[in-house]
């Protein structure tokens, strides 16, 4: 299933690439439009984060300043929100990996009754309106006294991560040629060693991508955190919503927004290194 989805995606990408290749001007215009739509607002937000005054017709801020950065991070709620978000995202990603990766391996390698049904059921958590599910969970959590606790937030955010953390690694494990593992067994490697030194390196890029998506997705997750976390647990997105609702200072929003890019950028750089390290293995050290 995951395989056919990738095939469809690949053929769609292939078709659009061919479309662009045939008409260079069309491609360039498309690229510029894309840059304007995606990067325009980001640039605008970025500039606002360093602005004191921006009079209307001016193309650039009229008075530059970084004073709002101090203001923003001097606020206890923002700093606490940031720290809470990092911790909760790390815990959710870690837990998700511990639960999902062995499951993905089992899905990929073993045939058992109900396998397809189970695999599809993870899609269900994302296919139906999320908020309905959250309300139901919140009601149960309320009875279990999990509302307003870190475990409550972690649990509800965990639900979100299941799809990516199961499907991507399952497809990756399925993609490993069994003969490569047999060849390692054949030269004398134990099954554990084969897993660590052959299977794992081959699926590492896909696992890194899944971890990355999970961490970032959790960091920015708002609905569940809002519903289950408040008033005790406030992640950064929750703090941002309150700030924006209470006082309309554009700079706060802009600065938090820019601050939220940091984990994305860090993880993207990390992912790039993992991917590159894997394709160009050089040197003799195993």
């Amino acid at each position: 299933m995951a395989g056919s989805a990738t095939t469809v995606m690949r053929s769609m990408v292939g078709r659009s690439l061919r479309l662009v290749a045939g008409r260079p001007w069309f491609g360039i215009c498309l690229l510029l439009l894309l840059a304007l739509v995606v990067l325009g607002p980001m640039l605008n937000v970025f500039l606002w984060a360093f602005t004191r005054n921006w009079a209307y017709p001016s193309l650039l801020p009229t008075v530059w300043s970084i004073e709002f950065w101090d203001d923003t991070f001097a606020r206890a709620d923002i700093l606490e929100g940031f720290i809470a978000s990092v911790w909760i995202s790390l815990i959710v990603t870690g837990l998700s990996a511990v639960i999902c990766l062995p499951a993905a391996y089992a899905f990929a390698r073993m045939q058992f009754p109900g396998r397809t049904f189970l695999l599809l059921s993870f899609l269900a958590t994302n296919a139906f309106p999320r908020f309905g599910l959250y309300i139901t969970i919140a009601v149960i959590f309320f009875r279990l006294r999990l509302i307003g606790t870190v475990p409550g937030v972690v649990l509800i955010q965990l639900v979100n991560t299941l799809l990516f953390m199961i499907w991507i690694p399952t497809a990756a494990f399925q993609g490993v040629d069994r003969a490569l593992e047999e060849a390692a067994l054949d030269v004398g490697a134990s099954p554990l060693r084969v897993f660590l030194q052959v299977t794992l390196p081959l699926v590492a890029p896909a696992l890194a991508a899944a971890l990355l998506l999970t961490f970032i997705g959790t960091f920015y997750e708002t609905q569940g955190a809002l519903l289950v976390g408040v008033p005790e647990v406030r992640t950064l997105p929750v703090v941002m919503i309150r700030l924006i609702n209470n006082q309309v200072i554009v700079q706060y929003g802009a600065i938090l927004s820019v601050a939220l890019w940091v984990p994305s950028l860090l993880l993207l750089i990390f992912a790039q290194r993992v991917l590159r390290g894997n394709t160009i293995a050089s040197g003799f050290g195993v």
Partner: peptide, 29 residues
Amino acid sequence: PPNRRPTAMVFQQYTLWPHMSVFQNIAYG
């Protein structure tokens, strides 16, 4: 088990480990 048998196999499909150099592939065992 296969990892303890004194046999060595050359497979029908290509089975060099793609993340290892030629040296590492041969040196692994």
